[in-house]
């Protein structure tokens, strides 16, 4: 049974395939010790797909939805394009590991893609976060931080109700 991981970054959505991890035989402790070393982790978890956000506005929309545990149309397209097809009446031979159960149940309701979010999956996602820029070769050093910086500002400015288009105008 194949295990995919959904990783939402400031630069875009990505899917990783966790090879040869038999969940029953694995304990969380074993995963913990293997994620620190990129040589070991990179053999087990590999990039399956990456879809960069189209614009800063798109990134903000995705971030707001992910934050609320909602799957956007863009995320749905990304998942359906890059994951094996789920056929009606057949039990899928894969599952999708997600960071948080709410988005998992939304994905399952809409697409029937089976999702899981448990200690084991969260450990693997910790590994992806640690090695993300190494696993994703298309990002240059510093690119991810730049994306986080831009998105952090737009996300936070919207929260404190600054007018996004004007610098000094705020609504109380």
């Amino acid at each position: 049974m194949a295990l995919y991981l959904l990783y939402e970054s400031a630069s875009g959505y990505s899917l990783f395939l966790a090879h040869g991890i038999d969940q029953i035989g694995q304990n969380t402790e074993a995963v913990r010790s293997s994620i620190s070393d990129i040589n070991r982790f990179g053999k087990v978890v590999q990039l399956a797909a990456f879809d960069p956000f189209e614009s800063a506005l798109d990134a903000l929309n995705q971030c707001n939805s992910v934050s609320e545990g909602v799957m956007t149309d863009e995320l749905r397209k990304f998942l359906e394009k890059n994951l094996p097809t789920v056929k009606e009446g057949k039990k899928p031979k894969f599952s999708l590991g997600v960071s948080e159960p709410k988005i998992g149940s939304h994905i399952f309701e809409e697409t029937k893609i089976p999702c899981q979010s448990n200690e084991f999956v969260l450990e693997l996602i910790r590994g992806v976060r640690l090695h993300f820029t190494t696993l994703l070769k298309s990002l240059k050093p510093g690119d991810l931080e730049k994306a986080q910086l831009g998105l952090g500002h737009s996300y936070s400015r919207a929260k404190v109700k600054f007018n996004v288009n004007r610098v000094d105008n705020m609504v109380i």
Binding site: C63, G69, E100, R129, F132, Q148, H153, Y155, K159
Partner: peptide, 27 residues
């Protein structure tokens, strides 16, 4: 403050729910 300091990424969110800002933070 963060506008002038580009090594500061501001996150206006509840620290009780890190999942909400998981897209903004690295390891």
């Amino acid at each position: 403050m963060a506008k002038k300091r580009t090594n500061v990424i501001p996150i206006i969110e509840d620290a009780r729910h890190p999942a909400k800002y998981r897209m903004l933070v690295g390891m």
